[in-house]
């Protein structure tokens, strides 16, 4: 379960070596915006070596590669893919054509390296075209593990101002959630960019969760705990979910058809939701959360 995806600059050893302690479910090792053109070569070698030291992974490791209209992305793939990152995050993904170019190159590198499994992709959608083609991108191939929204570049493309309230990206958010869910993949919200506004962050994350996002990108390690908390079930929710599952078990044992708890009918969607909550809790908090069913 991925609630938080935290960007780390690809050429800063001090950040990389401590990355796994920051509490994010996934790290995005950034070869793009966080690395100056003069350091693209050193950054990708550093990230490759870092991946080599992370054979046993607690954290999902994603590498953000440079855009397909730059001179860097092929070298990025050539050096990074053989180290089996958990996913690659391509930027400004606009549709099928771009994914054709990208995946053709990836397949070539993977074949050369003798990799058995295609490397998953988490396309970053940050253009108007990308938003409009969301379902095409989300359902492109089995490589697609989810969609991620990049609100900053998108608003530039939309010729509007990015605001904290985010009215301007409401359409993009709902369209991405709908497309991703239709394709059966995860969907991650745009980062909240005010590093010091913790209240604003919590509100923004809660809104994203309410819309159906699976989690959220974060640009500051200080945002990780708050976003994790928003996208985790609360103790009360876990407790209630367990109660529901226990009720269902008892009812089955007693051969009862209709089950109610606290005066409320428990139907199939409620049970499914309860199972999901208990499973999420197990993934977040570890094995001891496993129920006896």
């Amino acid at each position: 379960m991925i609630r938080t995806l935290s960007f780390l600059p690809g050429n800063t050893p001090n950040m990389l070596i401590n990355g796994e302690t920051l509490g994010a479910d996934a790290l995005i090792l950034d070869l793009e915006d966080a690395v100056s053109p003069a350091e693209k070569d050193t950054a990708r070698i550093l990230v490759r070596n870092y991946l080599r030291t992370q054979r046993i992974r607690k954290t999902f490791l994603i590498v953000r590669i440079n855009a397909t209209d730059t001179a860097y992305w092929r070298d990025d793939l050539a050096i990074i893919l053989p180290e089996k990152p958990d996913a690659v995050l391509p930027t400004k993904v606009s549709g099928r054509q771009m994914l054709d170019t990208l995946t053709a190159e990836m397949s070539r590198v993977e074949q050369d390296a003798g990799l058995e499994r295609p490397t998953p992709l988490l396309p970053l959608i940050e253009t108007a075209m990308g938003v409009e083609n969301a379902i095409e991108i989300a359902s492109y191939s089995d490589r697609i593990m989810g969609l991620a929204l990049g609100g900053e570049d998108l608003t530039a493309d939309l010729h509007c101002k990015r605001t904290k309230e985010g009215q301007e990206i409401f359409y993009a958010r709902t369209r991405l959630v709908c497309a991703a869910r239709a394709a059966g993949v995860n969907v991650f919200d745009t980062p909240f960019t005010d590093v010091d506004d913790m209240e604003g962050l919590e509100k923004d994350a809660q809104f994203a969760k309410a819309l159906g996002f699976s989690g959220k990108l974060v640009i500051s390690p200080r945002h990780i705990d708050t976003v994790n908390a928003v996208f985790s079930p609360t103790e009360e929710e876990i407790e209630y979910a367990r109660l529901i599952l226990a009720c269902i078990r008892d009812a089955k044992a007693q051969g009862k058809g209709v089950v109610s708890l606290r005066g409320k009918m428990i139907d199939a969607p409620i049970v499914a939701r309860a199972r999901q909550v208990v499973e999420d809790a197990r993934q977040i908090f570890g094995e001891e959360e496993d129920t006896d069913e």
């Binding site: 950040m15 401590n18 390690p221």
Partner: peptide, 10 residues
């Protein structure tokens, strides 16, 4: 503002 220091502090 060091993220490691903040993690320890938390």
């Amino acid at each position: 503002r060091d993220p490691v220091g903040l993690r320890i502090a938390a």
